[in-house]
Write a protein that binds this DNA or RNA. Structure first.
Lengths: 204, 204
DNA sequence: TGGTAAACGCAACTTACCGTTGCGTTAGTA
DNA sequence: TACTAACGCAACGGTAAGTTGCGTTTACCA
């Protein structure tokens, strides 16, 4: 069996990068339902045949775009200041930061959208779990150092926090209101029995 | 100007009812993206031309289905026992009850889905607000009788509660876990400073 | 009870996008 | 420089959207 010599550099790599990047852009503009292959092709300056040969179905294209461009799809590594509330706030606000770039909007729309296609849904669920992970770490560290009670249910906290934030992101396209996010975090942390910080002394 | 005699009873009414009901069923099965007019037509035992003449676009059909069948789309009138936690629990669990009927699944999918069409999205937002209303009333009554502190932010409570529940409904199709919903409610109510009920004595 | 026309069924049509195929051309690799 | 993987291009068939014309059914009213 003669292994065909794969061409990894040069034109092929350029095409792959451009197509996947454009896919995320169009995904952010039109959503999954409105994503047309020919639209992606023309925006990427590529013939649609090229796309079909590499990614047979629309779902595979979107899956590839979300998984391959890991640098974009990956959640921001949380910078821990050591205080739970401002760390969580910074983390959740990063969704708004992510939306600043065209491809980032595609990632966010994948985080909050139902694709309709089972394979796409699976990848979106993975992506959501990836984005939950930094928050989970923050909560676990906070519990380890006593900022959260030892019996705190971190899974439940994550469900409520991410549910509220993603729900808000889904319902209106405007950037997150920093103060609203802060109040959500305070409400939930206070519910689990975390010591509340004074109302005024929050870093902007 | 001769007013055309409208035909409200008989065949026309039967057709309208059957089509709109079928639309919700198909919406629950396939989602908005996968809803095909010809599919609705055949399932309703009606020619597709009939649908197009009455509802020119797919969006208008879905909007009509969601708004006209108000008895299905309407949220369950909350039966107040006088205690906040079990009332909220019963209210949120009704989403699962709603899903028992084929058309109810269409309503639920409209509550949690992004349509892609702006008009459909607007109606879905209205529908969500309709379903938030009973919970809002429960919370306001609870605050009025002192079960919640006077300074409790009811809008915020609703954002967090519905965000968590709808997020859960969206991510997996299984019925809501009653105990999980109860823990969400307790977490949030405890956060706002509501007196917590004993852990065991909840009317399952 | 019969006449009128609103509403429906049916078939044929255009349009749009999907996804495929064959073939010529470009450009990475040896 | 020779080879060929990968791309561009054009044309194709398939499916569903949405439209139109016309004949048929049937609700409404005199």
């Amino acid at each position: 069996m003669v292994r065909p010599k794969a061409r990894v550099g040069g034109r092929s790599a350029r095409v792959v990068t451009r197509v996947l990047e454009t896919t995320l852009e169009v995904l952010g503009r039109e959503g999954f339902a409105g994503l047309r292959i020919e639209d992606v092709a023309s925006c990427a300056g590529v013939n649609k045949t090229t796309i079909y040969r590499r990614w047979p179905t629309r779902a595979e294209l979107v899956v590839a775009a979300l998984t391959t461009l890991a640098t974009l799809a990956a959640p921001p590594s949380a910078v821990e200041s050591g205080e739970l509330e401002p760390d969580l706030l910074a983390l959740f606000m990063s969704a708004t930061t992510l939306r600043a770039s065209p491809a980032g909007r595609g990632v966010v729309s994948a985080l909050i959208a139902e694709g309709g296609d089972p394979e796409v849904d699976r990848v979106c669920a993975e992506l959501r779990e990836m984005h939950r992970q930094p928050a989970r770490v923050l909560l676990e560290h906070a519990r380890a150092r006593g900022e959260l009670p030892r019996r705190a249910d971190i899974g439940l906290l994550l469900d409520v926090l991410t549910g509220a934030v993603y729900g808000r992101l889904r319902e209106c396209p405007e950037p997150l209101d920093r103060d609203w996010v802060r109040r959500v975090i305070r409400l939930v942390l206070s519910g689990v029995g975390a010591p509340s910080r004074p109302r005024g002394s929050s870093g902007s």
